[in-house]
Design a protein around this nucleic acid. Structure first.
Length: 555
RNA sequence: GCGCCCGUAGCUCAGCGGAUUAGAGUACUUGGCUUCGAACCAAGGGGUCGUAGGUUCGAAUCCUGCCGGGCGCACCA
């Protein structure tokens, strides 16, 4: 409806003023109407005419449109449009899967490193990525969820060093098998912290850890599962992946289609770097680097002087692996915004030998999760707020009779509190205060849904009669409901779940206001109102589902 | 030093391909449950949109300088 009107008004402008313009309808304050446009102002400026006169002439023509109840001129020359009830109601039903039908998007996010614990940053990005995936799917996109994480590299060597120190050497490897399953993630994390601290403290240890790093690459290359170090490595690696999968299940995100451990991407990465040396990459001080200065970036090491691939090379490797597994139209890679320039380097390098593939890459950076004090969390210093801690604290704060509801509410609170912020900026997070159950929160929306569901439970008498007879408060609610499709499409285009949060909150407020002043059951207009309540409950529910927020029937 | 991002109400944030009177939540003050679920609703105070200029009929939104904060810049991921 919106798009159709925009085109028709553009055609009208073309006919009346022989000018080509792109007409954009905005959603003005309700008292002005359902849509507004400032074409008259643009037009008048360009043609040096009186804007109000242009607007008046246009409005008169627009008013004869069958979907338009009134078109009025306001202020300097805005045209405010009010739709007929029938037109408004016609916007309520639509299948959005045609919007991006056939489009294939690879979405890479979450990406935790093996041998380390999940922290709040992972929790945030996983929730955001999950929501984006669901939103894209709602508009017809085929989404492939990829999880790329480090199972080789210096962080692994640091952790292994910590383990060896803890158990007393490689020969003592059997000691790790007695560690209780539930304690494994935390145990690994503490060994990492120990190793990382030792690395910073002592040059000798630094060299030892570097040696372990090389050995891990070697045992990967040789598929060594028998040496003592290999036994420790593979066992702990499995612990990590089990832990990740369990965690994703616990927070109810869609499962990943494929995990790409870094070890499986190094070969392809090295091959592609070598194949494009010296055209794209050059040798420098024993290392293989990409000189980004020519495109305004910095030089970046892809293969170290010791012959080991850096994250850059592994990243090229994963790009190659992914596009082979899932030929895509676009790859969306989510990372922290501190990697923005780094991703530019990767894309610039890729563009120099595969511009077509490079053009399909889209970096979607997110901000850092910070405490209210503004202090950044660093897993390197062991000063983590672990993801599980967040879940626990919120769950404890939720008073609910049964466990399932309590879980739904705390997950809803956490997810919504993250998602309502625009992706890109930092997220302020306070375990005690940031997650609220009132106001603009997940539980508010869940509660709003249960109220509507409760009405519907009392009467199934949903009318099939036309909604065209809506009036006053009913129209207000309908108007808000009619915005849903536009919001989902925009959120999918921009990869911005917060647009849906804002909308759903406004929708719930609109309903709560309606509900406060308008009797549904027992009223003369029961049939028509029940129909609205049904549409409202369905709309709210589908929106929450897109965010990954649970929708309990009762709470 | 170079580059990128960010400064909107006490706090946390929307709005930022210009446009009708800058919005929410929270906190504070007040009113509303014998009536479909009060985790709700209504009302009030609170902002020279960091700052100084520029473009424009019109700027929180676009451009420039400055101030303040964050991040990145060769063998880490």
């Amino acid at each position: 409806m919106k798009q159709q009107l925009e085109l028709e008004i553009a055609a009208l402008v073309s006919r009346l003023f022989s000018a080509d313009t792109v007409v954009e309808l905005t959603r003005p304050d309700e008292k002005f109407g359902d849509f507004a446009t400032n074409v008259a102002l643009q037009l008048a400026t360009a043609a040096n005419m009186n804007p109000r006169a242009v607007a008046t002439q246009l409005a008169a023509e627009i008013e004869s449109h069958p979907a338009i109840a009134s078109a009025t001129v306001a202020g300097p020359g805005f045209i405010n449009l009010t739709l007929t009830a029938a037109a408004l109601v016609s916007m309520l039903q639509a299948d959005l899967t045609a919007v991006n039908h056939g489009k294939r998007v690879l979405l890479e996010f979450s990406c935790p490193n093996a041998f380390k614990e999940l922290h709040t940053g992972h929790l945030y990005q996983t929730i955001a990525g999950d929501a984006i995936g669901r939103i894209l799917e709602a508009t017809g996109v085929t989404v492939f969820r990829a999880n790329f994480g480090g199972d080789v590299g210096l962080h692994v060597a640091k952790c292994l060093y910590g383990i060896l120190e803890e158990i007393g050497g490689e020969t003592e490897y059997t000691k790790i098998f007695v560690i209780d399953q539930a304690a494994r993630p935390e145990w690994l994390s503490s060994q990492y912290v120990r190793g990382a601290a030792a690395y910073e403290r002592d040059e000798t240890i630094k060299a030892q850890i570097a040696a372990i790093n090389s050995r891990v690459y070697a045992l990967q290359a040789e598929q060594d599962h028998d040496s003592d170090l290999a036994k420790i490595y593979w066992e702990c690696r499995d612990w990590s992946y089990d832990y990740f999968k369990q965690f994703y299940d616990d927070i109810s995100v869609q499962p990943f289609d494929k995990y790409y451990p870094e070890s499986t991407t190094t070969e392809a990465g090295l091959a592609i770097v070598r194949a494009n040396t010296p055209q794209t990459f050059q040798e420098s001080e024993g290392a293989v680097v990409f000189k980004g200065e020519s495109v305004g970036l910095h030089t970046s090491v892809f293969i170290t002087s010791k012959g080991l691939p850096t994250y850059q090379t592994k990243d090229l490797g994963v790009i190659m692996a992914e596009v082979q597994d899932f030929p895509y139209d676009q790859r969306v890679i989510m990372t922290g915004n501190d990697q923005t320039e780094y991703m530019r380097v990767i894309f610039a390098a890729l563009a120099s030998f595969d511009p077509e593939l490079a053009a399909k890459q889209l970096h979607h950076p997110n901000g850092t999760v910070k405490f209210s004090s503004g202090q950044k969390m660093s897993s390197r210093l062991g000063n983590v707020t672990r993801a599980v801690d967040v879940l626990c604290v919120v769950s404890e704060a939720v008073a609910a009779n049964d466990l399932q509801t309590r879980n739904d509410i705390s997950l809803g609170a956490i997810k919504y509190s993250f998602l309502k912020h625009r992706i890109g900026g930092d997220i302020a997070f306070d375990l005690n205060e940031s997650i609220r159950l009132e106001g603009n929160s997940g539980p508010y929306l869940q509660y709003a849904h249960t109220r509507a569901a409760s009405i519907l439970k009392k009467s199934n008498e949903v009318s099939t009669e036309s909604l065209d007879a809506i009036k006053a408060d009913e129209r207000s609610l309908t108007r808000k409901l009619a915005e849903y499709n536009e919001v989902i499409i925009k959120a999918a285009e921009e990869l911005m779940p917060h647009l849906i949060c804002t909308y759903l909150y406004e929708l719930a407020q609109a309903f709560n206001r309606f509900y406060e002043n308008n009797r549904v059951i027992g009223d003369d207009r029961q049939a028509i109102r029940l129909t609205l309540v049904k549409i409202y409950a369905d709309t709210l529910k589908s929106g929450l589902v897109l965010l990954g927020v649970p929708v309990p029937e009762e709470m």
